[in-house]
Design a protein around this nucleic acid. Sequence first.
RNA 1: UGGGAUGUAGUGUAAUGGUAACACUGCAGAUUCUGGUUCUGCCUUUGGGGGUUCGAAUCCCUCCAUCCCAGCCA
Length: 565
Amino acid sequence: MENEKNEARPLNFLEKIIEDDLKNGRVPDDKIVTRFPPEPNGYLHIGHIKSICINFGLALKYGGRCHLRLDDTNPAKEETEYIDSIKEDIKWLGFDWGKYEFYASDYYDQLYEIAVRLIKDGKAYVDELSAEEMKEYRGSLTEPGRNSPWRDRSIEENLRLFEEMKAGKYPEGTLTLRAKIDMSSPNINMRDPALYRIKYAHHPRTGDKWCIYPMYDFTHPISDAIEGITHSICTLEFEDHRPAYDWACSIDGIEHTPHQYEFARLNINYLLMSKRKLLYLVNNHLVSGWDDPRMPTISGVRRRGYSPEAMKDFVSRVGVAKVEGVVDYSLMEFCVREDLNKRAKRLMAVLDPIKIVIDNYPDGKVEYFEAEDNPEDENTSKHRIAFSKNLYIEREDFMETPVKGYHRLYPGNEIRLKYAYYITATGVEKDGEGNITAVHCTYDPESRGGTTADGRKVKGTSHWVSADHALVAEVRQYDKLFSAECPGAATGNYLDDLNPDSLKIIPAAYIEEEAGKAKVGDYLQFIRNGYYCVDSRDSSPEHMVFNRTCTLKDSWAKQKAKMGL
RNA sequence: UGGGAUGUAGUGUAAUGGUAACACUGCAGAUUCUGGUUCUGCCUUUGGGGGUUCGAAUCCCUCCAUCCCAGCCA
């Protein structure tokens, strides 16, 4: 079914390129090879989902393969914790790299050999310029750069110096190995880019074996070439690096030539996708961690209760192009709701309770009704739900003096308690301050199960729980972390747009007993309220915690807002 | 002000010389034991100007706007 969908969809520009390459025999063995190459310096976020779906999706669609390659060339920033989370997140999305798990650090020896060859060919040199000097010599966007005074030293000296760099004879920041390309190139990336720098950092995989580490522009294309990548797909900001990529691929001795293609990264309004800013939120405890349900990380949306299917559908609807835009958050919510509507188990939960007493219902009597687990499914399973004289309904489902258009419970009005009975409100109890403490009702015994023989209709149906049977649990209602479409646009500081109401905790909500069976990973809908899941970190059988994934659409709230209520 | 890219409804994405479309959002209505879902309808589009052509979103010229690049980050 998913394939049919894919075939119906028009091709994006990458698919056109690949089909053209395939048709013209430009792909070895007709097997395309892509790769997803994250740097393990943070948690994956929604933006990465797009890249993952493109790379793994293309490989799947065209019968090729997709490698997972951890781009670990900067040990100062990279950690094993991140490697583990990256793998977990990709698996959660449902993609499998099989045996094709690679690390840029796997190629350190080969990379070193290639660098030595470059020196021998007179195409690289050891530079002694400091970082500041190098910047100065590089020129500017509008002015060409100047050659380093060390650019023309002898091959022998370069060889010795590079060897000594590797041996740890020089402190960090003193020497670099640079490609000898063109200091006057209009493309700054071609002005003798650094190939190696000295770094005395412990590497998560190679430990202390190396003290020189290869740069991205050198490592990435060669890693691609070694692995036989055919289509190296990255984001737009690397367009300027393509000449450097091609330069590296053309080094003598490199047989396979991959090609780089760039697409626009995913931006979503109300969300921040910068690793630096997300790290700040984590470090300053503005969120509970990388997997806080409000975080746009994959681990965050997973804990929030988003499904991998919804996220994949979302990025597929966004499409792939080179236009930098901002996708509406509402499209993502639509995808989440559409998927969850099909699969979420329905439960009744009263989050802001008001007590209902059915005066003409016998004391102590308990009846059980059958509730559908999912009305979207014709063959839905069912579960039991206890009914008694004392119930809770949602406080907003009762109004002593109803506003225009309100068709829930109010004195004299009849509504249905879902699956149970028709009830009519007869009066209220109030405390000394005039707050309603209970609503008295009568029920129609003939309406058992929620329908009547005379076929009379009611306009309102409320969810409810039996006061004596309900499970008490904590409910966390999450909302957007930022309240501005573009956080920080107004004041220049994204923290100013932090939504103060992004988390509302209900310590003791009443939920039907069936909720006790819910497990981490289950998708739930609290009827008429929203989609929920069991919190993977804090929920326990003794103290269950439910996270709100997203609300249901609420046209009544809209209508009320329009009436100015 | 150098180089590289990009401009199609509010948003995203199609249409490569032949009737501008799909989805989301928004609005209106119908259905409904969830004011959910579903269904129906509506609104709104080729950055500007010139040119080529019977015919241009598409080709040419020009202007404008936006984004990226001056790490020993990726």
